[in-house]
Structure formats: C-alpha cells, structure tokens
Amino acid sequence: MLTSDEFYTEAQRQLQARHDSVKLADVVVQAIVRDEIEPPHVPFIESRDFFFLSTVSAEGEPTVSYKGGAPGLVKVLDSRTLVFPNYDGNGMFKSMGNISEASKVGLLFIDMETPNRVRVQGTATLSADDPELDGYPGANMLVRVDVTACFLNCARYIHKHTRVAQSPYVPNEKGEQPFPSWKRIDLVQDALPARDAGRAAAEGGIISFDGYVEKLMDGTS
C-alpha cells in the first residue's frame, strides 16, 4: 500500500494545502490507491478495447495517445504487470520513443457506457520478442508495464456514450488490416516504408491532403 508521501509530489501537497484538501487527499490514498492491480480491477482493464496512454520524453515533454484494439487489448499478467501491443501507426513513434528513453507511463481506462474509469501508473519497457507478443497478431512490438500505482477514479464528469462499432482497422486473427487512407495521400508516397510503397494505386488510388481531410471530417478515413 502506498503512503501519501510516496504518492504525492511536493507541488501537489502545496496545492492541497492551499485548497484545504490535505486530509481529503490522505483519505483518498488510504481508500483507493494501491501499488498493484487488485482483483476487482482485472476484468475491467482486460475488457477494454481502448485506453489513453501518457508518456514523457527525457526532456519532460509530454504527449498522450489513444490506443485502440479488440477487447482484451491489455492483459494483466499478475498484480504488478500488464502488457499491451503497439500496432502500425503514423511512423512518428512518439509514445514508444518516450517509453524507450524515459519509461514513465500513465494509463487511463474508461467505460463510457456505465460510466467508470481506472488509472494505472508505472514504468514501461519495449520488446520485439516478448513471448506475449504472439497473442497480438499484427503488432510490431509489446509494451510491458511494471505497475507502481492503480486506483479507481470518480466518474462524475464522464459523458455517457454508446458504443456503436469496432474500428475496421483492428488487426484480425492473421494480423491483417485495411490499408489506411492517410497512406494514400500524395505527399507521403515517397516517404512510406518499403512494405507500403506502391500500394496506394491498388487500394483506391492516391488522394490529395485536402481529400484526406474531407474523409477525416466525414468519418470515412
């Protein structure tokens, strides 16, 4: 179990004092913050088909990324370890690059229908040959997180949504997925990795950037 001094920073403590919430913050840590994933949180985390991942660079520059997939996207291996895949993206590797040099991560799991949410903090590593990678067809690497904190979070500001459909870009059991529209943009054709070079013509043809934006705005990208 984490103590308040272990969980909060000095700056957080100063703001708690300024807003008369030191006692409340202490009670919250005692009540819900743990240094491991407790059994009630496991099915919730493993049933999610998306989560938000926060990372920082070695210089402290932050970024946050939406990570989506099929239900079971994240696997809890034990109370202090979880894993998730990295799928084909836009080639920037912002989150994965940050993990490789700074390792600190935050994961936010949200159920927009109930609503409910769980937050996880930890230290992450990347691997292209982790045995768990076999469970994620189409993934190019696996992220393994050593959990340092896990806690429920108040859901009162979560707007209730209804899930309509899974993204068609989630890799199937063979690791196959549709060719994304952004890889058809004329500006990127000479910069695509070898595995994607020349595919646009057979995947609907090359489009302009403005054409892609139109697809993005009307939900057909």
Rank of each mutant, 00 (worst) to 15 (best):
E6V: 02
E6K: 10
F7C: 04
Y8V: 01
T9L: 06
T9F: 01
T9Q: 02
E10T: 13
A11F: 00
A11H: 09
R13M: 10
Q14L: 13
Q16N: 07
A17M: 05
A17E: 14
R18E: 15
D20H: 14
S21F: 03
L24K: 08
L24M: 10
L24D: 10
A25K: 03
A25F: 00
V29L: 06
Q30A: 13
A31H: 08
I32D: 02
I32Y: 10
R34V: 04
D35P: 01
D35E: 06
I37V: 09
I37H: 01
E38N: 07
P40W: 04
H41T: 01
I45R: 02
F50Q: 09
F51Q: 05
S54W: 04
S54N: 08
A58K: 15
V64D: 07
G68Q: 12
A70L: 14
A70K: 13
G72L: 09
L73G: 03
V76W: 04
L77R: 13
R80A: 13
L82C: 11
P85W: 09
N86P: 00
N86H: 12
G89L: 07
N90T: 08
G91C: 07
G91Q: 02
F93T: 06
S95F: 11
I99L: 05
S100F: 03
S100L: 07
E101V: 15
S103R: 11
V105A: 10
I110Y: 05
T114P: 00
P115N: 03
R119C: 12
V120L: 13
L126Q: 04
A128E: 13
A128I: 10
D130L: 03
D130M: 05
E132I: 00
L133A: 06
Y136F: 15
A139P: 02
V143F: 00
D146R: 14
T148Y: 05
A149M: 08
C150W: 00
N153Q: 13
N153D: 12
N153E: 11
C154S: 10
C154E: 08
A155V: 07
A155E: 12
Y157E: 08
I158L: 15
T162V: 14
V164H: 03
V164M: 08
Q166W: 11
Q166F: 07
S167M: 06
P168C: 11
Y169M: 09
Y169S: 03
V170W: 10
E173F: 06
K174F: 12
G175P: 01
F179E: 02
W182R: 04
I185A: 01
L187K: 11
V188C: 07
Q189I: 01
Q189S: 01
A191F: 14
A194H: 06
R195N: 03
A197I: 03
A197P: 00
A197F: 05
R199Q: 14
R199A: 10
R199V: 08
A201H: 12
A201P: 00
E203Q: 15
E203A: 15
G204F: 02
I206P: 05
I207F: 09
I207W: 08
S208E: 04
F209S: 10
F209D: 09
D210H: 08
G211Q: 04
Y212C: 03
E214D: 15
E214S: 12
K215Q: 15
K215H: 14
G219C: 09
G219K: 07
T220Y: 05
T220H: 10
S221K: 12
S221C: 05
